[in-house]
Design a protein around this nucleic acid. Structure first.
Lengths: 210, 210
DNA sequence: AGAATAGTGTCTCTCAGACATTATTTG
DNA sequence: CAAATAATGTCTGAGAGACACTATTCT
């Protein structure tokens, strides 16, 4: 009976949600994972599992579920404590990685065992989380525009949102605040916002999006 | 490194929420638990852990969280997959048990390790679950009156609820249905209701109680 | 000046919350 | 018929959702 941790890491590339996978022999892929060392916590093990690819200080890990069905790995009984994380691409270590280890969640390669189920469940939880919290900013850099944040929500939820209602609700939730900065580009420059570090509390009072 | 499962079992006695504990040496208590056998799933192990005390077919187990901090058990590294369950007293095996192994959740005896945290977290999740679902009926027998169900909610949430609003919302949720039966007692007989076995789907659309 | 994107306010309708009286049974 | 509990409907206010125009910059 072996125990390990696995991590479902989501990020955002252009117009799609992507997940980090690592190759194993036989053309198959798996979720990044690791055994648990005697002196470390499960969350630390999860951080270590992704640290070759991600700056772990920027990855908020959250425990998802523990999979331990005796049939999940036909060759050996394996229990996996699965975490999930949202990171923005600034936290991704540049190496062979980008475009080689990240896959759009709607175009995943063949995965081992029950890892497809795990990714599906993580995705469901991510959508659920977004509806009830302002967690979407974790996929963006420190400062971001409201249009970028709205775009993020639209990609993940798979539907378009009304701009005025989106702004009203996200601001009323009080989780992000204005910065003095603007971002210039094509068209009128946009106000930049950032996460309010003091209000770490989750907004579970009322769902933000339908 | 040992792996086990633990179960937080909640039930209802008179006017209080109670939890099942088992004694260990030294006057301390712990959550019922068990190792995991090679051919069984984690949930099966959890069912086996409580089967001396509970008719497991009547206990809906739900995975809560996996605790694995290296300091949680000072004498050996232990990872515990924790489940929680709601049962009604009809499912409790009559033996030495009742009144000896069940404790009001606000009057727990000394517990080992991080088990107090685990119970606290389970309680938080239970309250949260009740607000968003009609799970309260799991603490009642198959058939129950709306007053009994409301009473259950009031005990767990720790506040009184308006009778008309309670009925409206619980019935609109569509999770319980009328039976042809009535229960006589003091005062006007009350209609009995039961859980709608076909609609197992959780009501997460909108919170039922504030 | 035109193109591009940012930013803003109002109305309506639904649902949550507050609230009191009538109905049916037992002793 | 008194006591006990069950059952029922309405009004109001807040918030969700739909909706279109103005503001600022760049080329």
């Amino acid at each position: 009976m072996t125990l390990d941790v696995r991590v479902v890491v989501f990020s955002l590339r252009e117009d799609a949600l992507i997940a980090l996978l690592v190759p194993i022999s036989g053309g198959k892929w798996e979720l990044p994972g690791s055994g648990v060392m005697p002196e470390e916590s499960l969350e630390e093990a999860a951080g270590r599992a992704i640290s070759p690819h991600i700056d772990r200080r920027q990855a908020h890990l959250e425990q998802l579920y523990t999979y331990g069905d005796p049939q999940r790995n036909p060759s050996s009984r394996q229990v996996s404590v699965v975490y999930f994380a949202l990171v923005h691409m600034d936290a991704v270590r540049i190496s062979v990685d980008i475009a080689k280890l990240w896959f759009r969640v709607d175009q995943l390669p063949p995965l081992v065992f029950d890892h497809p189920d795990i990714v599906r469940y993580a995705l469901r939880r991510l959508r659920y989380k977004l509806e009830y919290s302002a967690a979407g900013f974790q996929l963006l850099p420190d400062e971001f525009t409201l249009s970028e944040l709205q775009h993020t929500y639209e990609i993940i939820l798979g539907e378009t949102l009304d701009k005025r209602n989106f702004r009203r609700r996200i601001l009323e939730a009080g989780i992000i605040v204005e910065t003095p900065h603007l971002r210039s580009g094509e068209g009128r420059p946009a106000r930049l916002y950032r996460y309010r570090a003091d209000a770490m509390a989750e907004v579970k009072a009322r769902r933000l999006f339908p």
